[in-house]
């Protein structure tokens, strides 16, 4: 029982990071119909921001703030430099553009900083553990869970209680009508990228805290999982992205924790097979958007 509880904590911790990233992808997709595979590189940029700050002896809070700031800057710059020129292009063109942006950033980091991961050392107290009843939870894992919860609450408040949040939700529903209402498309789209940048930045902080290093390929694997999560949740659905993130995290942790040793090498294949089975059952995802868009 303790083992199951412990693995549930692991699933929530991992699923939360996937949910943040998936939400970042979904926010942009819902408005501009772009699956931004360079979203992982926003995370990487934030990771290097944190590394530079900590290596310069900045306090942790300031390093986190810098990480978030550079993530927002990177996401908005990406939109301005690469994606704005492609606005209105078909899905395939946008997809290839995002892959190109992703590759360019990776190679710049590999050759400009180092191909090797750089260590990020956080204060010793963050490596401690807490005993919560039968469950022993790491301080970083606990911070991760709380941060994810807080981020989702804040995003929900922003989207529901502010004018710009309302504009973004409306744009996700019907962008041409939002433009006819007088809202500037550039502002709404830039805001969507900024929000996705914040989410990637928060995910990067948690990722770096848990993994202890930053490398040029850091964002590649999680953004792939986040993409799977957005498809599983329902492309374009913000709620679906969060649900998808937690489901993907739970499936991964459960398979890693409970599969027999002989089947462990097939874990990824089994995980994807399960997700395909869900999509066969619900082709539009677990929580599809009002206006579903499938490729």
């Amino acid at each position: 029982m303790d083992l199951i509880l412990q693995q549930m904590v692991n699933a929530v911790s991992l699923g939360g990071i996937y949910a943040l990233l998936a939400l970042g992808l979904a926010v942009v997709f819902s408005i501009v119909r772009l699956i931004n595979f360079a979203h992982g590189e926003v995370m990487t940029v934030a990771g290097y921001g944190i590394w530079i700050a900590l290596a310069s002896a900045w306090p942790v809070a300031a390093a986190v703030a810098l990480g978030l700031a550079v993530a927002i800057l990177a996401a908005v710059s990406m939109e301005r430099v690469a994606f704005r020129a492609m606005r209105g292009a078909d899905v395939t063109t946008l997809l290839i553009t995002s892959f190109a942006v992703s590759e360019i950033i990776k190679v710049l980091f590999q050759n400009g900083i180092s191909a090797r991961p750089v260590p990020v050392v956080l204060p010793a107290w963050m490596s401690g553990t807490l005993d919560l009843g039968p469950v022993r939870i790491g301080v970083i894992a606990l911070i991760s869970i709380l941060t994810v919860a807080l981020s989702l609450v804040l995003l929900s408040v922003f989207l529901r209680r502010t004018v710009m949040g309302l504009a973004m939700r409306a744009a996700a529903e019907d962008f041409p009508v939002v433009r006819l209402m007088g809202l500037r498309a550039n502002h709404v789209i830039a805001l969507a990228f900024a929000v996705s940048g914040i989410l990637a930045g928060v995910a990067a902080v948690l990722w770096v805290a848990q993994r202890g290093s930053v490398d040029p390929l850091m964002g590649a694997a999680p953004v792939l999982k986040a993409f799977i999560a957005t498809v599983l949740g329902g492309l374009g659905s913000l709620t679906g992205a969060v649900i998808g993130g937690f489901v993907v995290g739970a499936v991964e942790v459960c398979l890693q924790g409970f599969l027999p040793q002989s089947l462990l090498p097939y874990r990824e294949a089994i995980s994807l097979a399960l997700i395909i089975a869900v999509l066969v059952w619900r082709p539009d995802g677990l929580w599809p958007a009002e206006q579903t868009s499938r490729s």
């Binding site: 083992l3 412990q6 693995q7 991992l14 990071i17 590649a220 694997a221 924790g257």
Partner: peptide, 21 residues
């Protein structure tokens, strides 16, 4: 005991829990 991971695996907490058990 043994555990198997995938290169660039996002998370090792499940493996750690297996070792703890």
């Amino acid at each position: 005991g043994e555990a198997s991971f995938t290169m660039n695996q996002p998370d090792f907490s499940a493996i750690v829990t297996t070792i703890q058990a």
